[in-house]
Write a protein that binds this DNA or RNA. Structure first.
Lengths: 193, 193
DNA sequence: TCCGAAAAACTAACAGTGTTAGTATATTGT
DNA sequence: ACAATATACTAACACTGTTAGTTTTTCGGA
């Protein structure tokens, strides 16, 4: 019954590590408790329940994805920035699939704080779009489009939908991003006209 | 202990109805058994296990999505066909969110038969692309791009990511599809050159 | 028509999930 | 040093899918 010196932050960190190593699917409070040398019920001294823990993990995951995007666009502009951001997003999803999956399965509909945090993911995209001469409305639309392309691609790739063909996935992705670059430039022309 | 006259197909049908009415999240064998006036264990006389039942539901869901797309492109060509297909796909996801979610959470990586069936979703897209002068490789890439756009959009919309802004979602979607049409036409030009 | 076989329902149990209540012990502040 | 608080525990509950073993119904063939 010796104390384990657990903290809320420590529990969250351990949960993240467990998810990254064993997979989101197999994650459970019991397994997490085992790692911390504690009974499952004891975790409730540090977290309210599983939803709250999951939300906390979500905050971390979102901040990581945001950082990856910000790092990518540093010192770049317009098409070059878009391509770098898209590539970084893609790499993040490939290298940390479980963490990415956490983001995409967050119950944002039920949690307004989480929805606000998720807005962080959009921030780097908006920054890049600031480099174009666009109305706020256009930026809004374009931001949605880019997000859809990036997530849609990653999601299907992770589901295994793209693996049975010997056609390079990265090239398909680059093509999709190129279509977006065209959209951005085209929207700009509409404004300038 | 009177028999309920259950069949494998009947169980699958009831499961689909239950998912559509109560949501995929809250679906369980016990609830399904209740609806059929039977104990949960009795379901195992008609299905092997839950994975198999889920796979069966997946086949249905995939065929429905395929049909929606085929209906949409009937009698249409090129840009008009692409737009109609994309719109039908979007409507399907909105009107039958639980069924769409089933498709997107199918464990295709573990089930080759399921992966083959999932190829059906691509068929209507390939048919539309046949209306363009493209190499097989280009068609492959483009098919992936369109799928990514459509699914990415639907997925984020369902997650609630697009709801906090008074910016019309349908217009963003149309913009994304327009970008794809440009990609298709542009690829065609490359071939013809 | 009867009887054995097969099909389909049952009950009971198991291992797993998250979660709560109540209890004991360790730590901390006065 | 003692009271208060924090943290761990055990035991239990209501779920989840799943299996084994049992009883009943149904059906096909002699």
């Amino acid at each position: 019954m010796a104390r384990q010196g657990l903290t809320r932050a420590g529990v969250v960190r351990a949960a993240i590590e467990l998810i990254e190593s064993e997979g989101l699917q197999r994650f459970s409070l019991r397994e997490l408790a085992n790692r911390l040398h504690v009974r499952a019920a004891s975790l409730y001294n540090h977290i309210k329940n599983m939803d709250e823990l999951y939300t906390e993990i979500g905050y971390y995951a979102i901040s990581e994805l945001k950082r990856a995007q910000l790092d990518a666009i540093a010192g770049k502009e317009r098409a070059q920035a878009i391509e770098a951001l898209a590539e970084a997003y893609h790499r993040f999803g490939r290298e940390r699939p479980e963490i990415y999956q956490v983001i995409m399965s967050l119950p944002m509909i039920k949690n307004d704080a989480l929805l606000t945090a998720a807005g962080d993911i959009v921030e780097p995209i908006m920054t890049v779009l600031d480099g174009y001469t666009l109305t706020e409305l256009q930026k809004m639309h374009l931001q949605r489009v880019l997000r859809s392309i990036m997530h849609g691609f990653l999601s299907q790739e992770a589901a295994g939908c793209f693996r049975h063909f010997p056609v390079e996935v990265s090239q398909s992705y680059r093509m999709a991003v190129q279509g977006f670059v065209w959209l951005a430039e085209n929207s700009e022309k509409e404004v300038e006209a």
